Amino acid sequence: MLGTRVLTAAVALPLAVLAILFLPPMGLAVAVGALMLAGACEWAALAGLAMRGRAVFVVAAAVVMALALGLSEADGPVSSDGLVLGLAAVFWVGAIGLVVRFPARWHATLGRRPVALVVGLIVLAAPVVAVAYIDQADQGPLLVLLLCLMIWGADTGAYVAGRTLGRHKLVPRVSPGKTIEGAAGGLATAMILGALGALVLGLDGWRTLGVALLGAWIATISIVGDLTISMFKRSAGVKDSGRLFPGHGGVLDRLDSMLAAAPWFVIGLHLVLLAA
């Protein structure tokens, strides 16, 4: 199993980096969208839909993504992409309460199929919208890569710190393997990568600090994304959300952190880079 995981990662990570750096903005958004549609099928399965229902949900997710991208420049007080990102960001902050209290309130909130499906349409569209938005900015590919490095670094830092220092469980009712020490290691790693990324981007001292703090928040909200999918899997009684990535599980197993981090990264960029 370990060999399969390593081989999958050895193939997937370079492909991801190449796609981020060399695909045109809309091409990268389409690639992320394809992954999110595979994730939509898994989300629908975790919500308890049969095969036909899953197909309908995937089509609905594709429509939401297309509308969010196609109408992003439409006139109005709030753009469609901004609405999707804002709703997703609010949801992930609210999900902290669900994670901490699980299983209390689960069946009254995300455990209800209609709620889970509506939320899924929003949070699955958000990474597509976020990537399309970021990739069109100045140094867009590097910013998308920085987002991914923060997420990957947080995951790796949490794993190493958890394995070597982990003593205190983070949220044992949701994920018994996660520790407070591991989470701290993930935050520290993401902050360091954020600071290094800011230096590569040529930012000044205060904005470098801002990007480092953004890294800490990205690591935090990434954990929330991971734990939220874990709640779904526990409720559905499954170990993995799917089998797309050998040794790693499904799209939601691998990209759960991206679901939560992507909309907040866009918000963070506005706060850090566009602030006077």
Results as ranks from 00 to 15, higher is better:
residue 1 M to S: 15
residue 5 R to M: 05
residue 5 R to F: 06
residue 14 P to F: 09
residue 17 V to Q: 05
residue 19 A to V: 10
residue 20 I to Q: 01
residue 23 L to R: 08
residue 25 P to E: 03
residue 27 G to F: 07
residue 27 G to R: 12
residue 28 L to V: 01
residue 29 A to Q: 08
residue 32 V to T: 00
residue 33 G to T: 07
residue 34 A to K: 02
residue 38 A to P: 00
residue 40 A to G: 12
residue 43 W to L: 14
residue 44 A to D: 08
residue 46 L to I: 01
residue 48 G to I: 13
residue 57 F to G: 04
residue 59 V to D: 10
residue 61 A to Y: 02
residue 61 A to F: 10
residue 64 V to P: 02
residue 65 M to N: 06
residue 69 L to Q: 13
residue 70 G to P: 14
residue 70 G to W: 12
residue 74 A to E: 14
residue 76 G to R: 09
residue 79 S to H: 06
residue 80 S to Y: 15
residue 82 G to D: 04
residue 84 V to L: 07
residue 85 L to I: 11
residue 96 I to L: 15
residue 97 G to A: 15
residue 97 G to M: 13
residue 99 V to M: 01
residue 99 V to Y: 04
residue 103 P to Q: 02
residue 109 T to L: 14
residue 110 L to W: 00
residue 114 P to H: 11
residue 116 A to D: 05
residue 119 V to P: 00
residue 120 G to S: 10
residue 128 V to P: 06
residue 135 D to H: 15
residue 136 Q to I: 05
residue 138 D to Y: 03
residue 139 Q to W: 12
residue 142 L to R: 05
residue 143 L to N: 05
residue 144 V to Q: 10
residue 147 L to W: 05
residue 151 I to P: 02
residue 156 T to W: 01
residue 158 A to K: 10
residue 158 A to D: 05
residue 169 K to I: 10
residue 171 V to Q: 11
residue 175 S to G: 09
residue 180 I to C: 04
residue 181 E to R: 08
residue 181 E to T: 15
residue 183 A to W: 10
residue 184 A to W: 10
residue 185 G to T: 08
residue 186 G to Y: 05
residue 187 L to Q: 08
residue 187 L to I: 15
residue 189 T to K: 00
residue 195 A to Y: 01
residue 198 A to F: 00
residue 198 A to I: 03
residue 199 L to K: 09
residue 200 V to D: 13
residue 201 L to H: 05
residue 201 L to F: 05
residue 202 G to I: 07
residue 203 L to Q: 15
residue 206 W to E: 12
residue 208 T to K: 03
residue 215 G to L: 04
residue 215 G to T: 01
residue 217 W to C: 10
residue 224 V to C: 11
residue 226 D to F: 08
residue 227 L to G: 09
residue 228 T to N: 01
residue 231 M to T: 08
residue 231 M to R: 02
residue 232 F to C: 00
residue 236 A to H: 14
residue 243 R to Q: 14
residue 244 L to A: 13
residue 246 P to E: 14
residue 247 G to A: 03
residue 248 H to A: 05
residue 250 G to E: 04
residue 251 V to R: 06
residue 252 L to D: 11
residue 252 L to G: 03
residue 252 L to P: 02
residue 256 D to E: 12
residue 271 L to Q: 00
residue 275 A to R: 06
residue 276 A to C: 03
residue 276 A to T: 12
